[in-house]
Every structure is written in structure tokens, then in C-alpha cells.
Design a protein around this nucleic acid. Structure first.
Lengths: 235, 235
DNA sequence: TTAAATCTTTACGTTTTCTTTACGTCAAAT
DNA sequence: ATTTGACGTAAAGAAAACGTAAAGATTTAA
């Protein structure tokens, strides 16, 4: 890795801190740790890390507050670390501007994969309208934004307006979880009630068209309680 | 008979205006004239001519301004007419988007040649760096832009002026969806309201002429809620 | 000037899409 | 084992978008 990415880990539990530190160091990341929220905010401002790993259950400051405070001035990718017992927190964290989440206990492979994805798609350097790749491709599925065309194994797939908007939104953020509320607002505007039924129906219709077996999807994944995630674009 | 090419002449000198008018009429062009820049801009937006002849020395608006204003929405070929050959002026006009430049006094033969050339090369609907294709072909359908001719299985198809422009616009962007509003602006100018009814009627008429069964089209497809897309040119 | 062709508008039936409702399934928690 | 909550799917009604015929309006050609 060249140059090294710097990672800021905000985590109060000593055992997890050292586990992650060791893991990341061995992979060539430059890692700094903070044991409480106060320290974390301070270090973030002075270090300007490339990515932040944030445990939501800190002793001094509420995790949501930390995300909000960071997002006031920084767009550094944030990966939230959360205990399974606090499921509903995750969606809120993502809505506040976190980029991804990972649930304890987690494996090394998963953690590293999430970090790589977030760094790759990290919007910390994007100014204004992020330039998306002109084409999304994953396995047999291809989306040509310019031609407004979706093909599966070369075959044209007919999508309705809303279906196309939806898959485009997911594809242009592929690899990343988009929360239900985020998707709803993007597609149906800010005045829609937050009943996701209409979204589920549309997702089912899309899956019927692009998945061999909608029950075991290859392209669009459900993150239960959180939202949807699309397989990362190949290239 | 093929649809006539329509020409808009923007020229303040009466003698030149009538000279060019007579010349072009005798050659089968449909010509409209404007005596000042204001009128010229207005007529262009309402007529959407196939080509524009523009005198740079108009009394009211600077010629360069007119070119720039037209290029905000139209890609119709513009041939600039100038009293004196100033290399700088010529370069600037071409830079702003004019297609050719002719110096007074000029002969009939030269003018007609320039017009033919601009119309031929004026694949005015092709966007970006699309290579100039002299012919569109797909299944039995053929469009010869140079000859201004549409044939279906060798048989000549009679199209009206608007119908020809429409199918040309779609053909020169074949494979891509063109939105209703884009098409409306290209064919009916920037001042048309965004009621697509007139477009639907014209598409129905075109389909009646070129599709075996308009309900299951082979050449022009509707992308509901978005626009129309023409089958990609073969070869 | 008159007839024909073209363009635009109006009206209406059909198709497609959108939304809601109802119900079934699965997994986690009691 | 049962309950509960979240998600997926089917189907039906409502709404929007589309295509077509036909009647004016305008332009062009004879």
C-alpha cells in the first residue's frame, strides 16, 4: 500500500482496540486510537484521517452526536461499529452521514473489506457532483446510464421509471448500504410518509426482472432493519 | 417529393436578401428572411430551420452574440456571411459554433455549394464526438441523409418535414433514449410548452409509415415516462 | 382563388404504471 | 412452541401515460 491510509479508531473497549489496531497495522494502515468521544473528535480534527471507525457505545458522548459533529465540517468516511443489541441505532447513524456499519462480533476479513470499500467510494475528495462511472457492471448485469439502458446477459431489461431510478440510485452507491429513509426521500421526495411498503413492492419487481432467484439475490441485498445494498461495480 | 430544406436568412441589406431568396427558391429551398438580429433569433426559435445564413453586420445585435445565443439550444448549421474577410472575425465565429464562413461578394454557385456541404455534414442532431454516418440502416429501413431520403424495403417513404426531422434526430442518436423535452426543443424550439401531444401524434404518423405493426414497433421504441429510442444503426 | 397537404388541437379508448391492501414466510425473541 | 416484527409477493383498484382518429387551422401548390 502506497502511500499508507490513516485510520482513526474511536473505541472504549481496550480488547477490541488492540485487536483492530493489530489487524490494520499488519495490513499497512497507519492507525491512531481514541478511547473516548472527546479524544476522538479532537484527534480527528488534528489528524484528518482517511477513514474513521467509530464505536457507538462510548462512555462520554453519544455516538450520534459524534457523527453529527464530525459531519459539520468533515466528509471523511465513517464506519460505525455497533453491538447487536442496538440494532435500530445503525439506521439512524447512516442517516446522519455514516457510510457503513459493522456489527460486533465481526471478522477480520469483513472489517478489511468494509474499509477498502469505504475508502474507494469515500467522498472526502469529491467536490459537488461526484462523477460516476458511465456504466455499472456486475456479473451479467449492466447499466448504461448514458443510454438509459439495463441489460442482463446482453438481453435488454425493461424497467419502469421508478424502477430505473431505484436501481440507478443503488448502483451509483454500490457497495454501500442506503437506508430505507434515504432511498424513500430520494425517489419519492421529502413529503412521503415513512412506510416502506411501496419500496418493498418496487424492489420485488426489480428483483423479479434482474435476479435468477429473487430469494437468493446476486445483485441487490437486503440489510434487514437498515436498507438495501447493491453488489459493488466490477472494473 | 422529399420535404424541402428550410433556410433562414438573417440579413439587413434588402438587395442581398432578395438576391439570395430568389436564388434559393429557384433551387427548391423554402426560405424565410429576417431583416434584423432580433427578428432572426425569434424566427429561428419558431421555425427551427434546417440551416441559417447569418450576416454578421446587423444593425441591432452583434453577429457573435447571435451565434452564441443560437448555440445555447440549437445545433442547426450556421453559415456566416461577412462583408470583409477578417481572419480573426472568421476564427471567432467558427469558434462560437458557426459551421462555415463566406465573404461578400460571392457567386451563386459558391453559395449553393456551401449550403449543400453544410447540410450534408450537418449531422446536426449527432451529439458529441459521434462519427458522421451518411446512412442509417436497420432491417428494411434506410435513411440517406445526403439524399434526404427514407426507404423501406427499397420503397420510398414519404415523410413530412417534421416527420423527417424527427426520425433523423432519433436515427442520429440511435440506441439512446432521447427525452421528450429534448426532442421537443430540437424540433419545435425552446419556446414550445411541454405538452407532448404533438410529438405523440407525429410519432404515430411516422410509425404508420415505417412499422409493419405500430403496436409492436421494430424501429422506434417508447420508453414510457422518458422518451423515444430508435433501434441502433446496423454495422 | 381553390384544392391539397401539412400542422395543431381535441377527444377518447387502451395500456402501462403506481399505490394500496392483504397475506405468506422467515428469523429472532419470548 | 408461540409470538412478533420485518420483509417479500400477489393482486386489485386508481392514476398516469400513451396512441389514434378526426376535426379545425394553416400553409403550400396548382
Amino acid at each position: 500500500m502506497n502511500p499508507k491510509y490513516s485510520v482513526l479508531l474511536i473505541e472504549d473497549e481496550e480488547s477490541i482496540r488492540s485487536f483492530i489496531s493489530t489487524t490494520l497495522k499488519s495490513q499497512g494502515y497507519k492507525i491512531t486510537t481514541a478511547a473516548c468521544g472527546q479524544e476522538g473528535l479532537h484527534l480527528c480534527a488534528s489528524l484528518c484521517p482517511d477513514i474513521i471507525l467509530l464505536d457507538l457505545g462510548l462512555p462520554d458522548i453519544d455516538g450520534m452526536t459524534i457523527i453529527a459533529k464530525l459531519r459539520e465540517w468533515s466528509s471523511t468516511p465513517i464506519i460505525v461499529i455497533s453491538a447487536r443489541s442496538h440494532e435500530q441505532e445503525k439506521a439512524k447513524a447512516l442517516d446522519l452521514g455514516a457510510d457503513d456499519y459493522i456489527t460486533k462480533p465481526f471478522g477480520t476479513v469483513e472489517l478489511l473489506a468494509r474499509i477498502r470499500t469505504s475508502l474507494r467510494h469515500g467522498n472526502q475528495f469529491a467536490v459537488g457532483n461526484t462523477p460516476y462511472a458511465p456504466i455499472y457492471r456486475h456479473k451479467e448485469l449492466m447499466i448504461d446510464y448514458d443510454k438509459h439502458l439495463v441489460t442482463l446477459a446482453g438481453e435488454m431489461i425493461h424497467l419502469t421509471q421508478i424502477e430505473y431510478k431505484l436501481i440507478t440510485l443503488l448502483a451509483q452507491n454500490s457497495g454501500k448500504v442506503l437506508t430505507y429513509s434515504y432511498i424513500m426521500e430520494k425517489i419519492w421526495g421529502p413529503y412521503i410518509d415513512n412506510n416502506n411498503q411501496i419500496l418493498r413492492v418496487n424492489m420485488a419487481n426489480i428483483r423479479r426482472k434482474i435476479e435468477k432467484n429473487p430469494a437468493t439475490p446476486e445483485h441487490v441485498f437486503t440489510e434487514i432493519g437498515i436498507g438495501y445494498r447493491m453488489a459493488e461495480c466490477e472494473q
